[in-house]
Design a protein around this nucleic acid. Structure first.
Lengths: 136, 136
DNA sequence: CAGTATCCTTAGGGATACTG
DNA sequence: CAGTATCCCTAAGGATACTG
């Protein structure tokens, strides 16, 4: 493993694991996308749009990055109509425990501060019994 | 605990624990700021600027948010010159294990991809012996 | 020392229409 | 169905000078 230290005594942003990790799986959308796949084991473009308040362009960008960074796999089924399934790679699955702990922390703080919590996330994370009607 | 579900079958962004947690401690700078305090138990404005590649305005903003969200405490010592110390609250300390796991994940991926890792972070996180000259 | 104030730039996201 | 393409917009960040 190589070590750098750019600006003498100052941490170099380009070589910081936090920056790397956060860019790869900890932005505004990726935890939700990853967890949506995790819950269903695999899922599709139109289903993300049904479950997450994300626009098409932003979803497409995030899916491409997640694929490029090796967290998800894109599989095309040449049917009519076309079907594409996204699933987690082994690497993708390694972030799930971290996502769980982030979710649990946010959840505790929101409860402590009296902020209501969304039912979909609660089902996805096992804090509420799963209601299939939410996930179709 | 109250549960909401805004748009019927779609997760509501404002009530999602990921969104909350990421806003509070998982942006571009906060992990570094929190960890800088954690390593020294308390630290000061000018020392952040020496160790982290952040500008004054952005540092000030992030410190205010961290204080407002209850992760850090600001203590003023009325000396000449003025001295201000930032330290972690109990809540602030609860994010450190999560930060550790995020760091460790990013670190592993960077190693796997042949990306060099910054020495300051490695010392802060115990992967390299601490060299005091880096932290003054 | 510990910050504000000011001005500027840009990446990221949002809405909507369109395509293979 | 699974995406692009286009246009717009604003919050976040960067540089630098200044203040109590």
């Amino acid at each position: 493993m190589s070590i750098i230290n750019g600006d003498e005594h100052k941490l170099c942003f380009d070589h910081d694991p936090y920056t790397y990790a956060i860019k790869v799986f900890c932005n505004r959308w990726k935890p939700l996308i990853i967890y949506a796949i995790y819950v269903d084991s695999s899922t599709r473009y139109s289903k993300f749009l049904k479950n997450i308040p994300i626009t098409e362009k932003v979803l497409a960008n995030n899916l491409k990055e997640l694929e490029k960074d090796g967290l998800i796999t894109r599989t095309v089924f040449y049917e009519v109509p076309l079907r594409v399934e996204y699933s987690l790679t082994d690497t993708g699955r390694t972030v799930c425990p971290i996502l769980d702990s982030i979710y649990a922390w946010g959840r505790e703080e929101m409860i402590r501060n009296g902020i209501p919590i969304d039912a979909v996330g609660e089902m996805w994370h096992g804090y509420l019994p799963m209601d299939e009607s939410f996930l179709e």
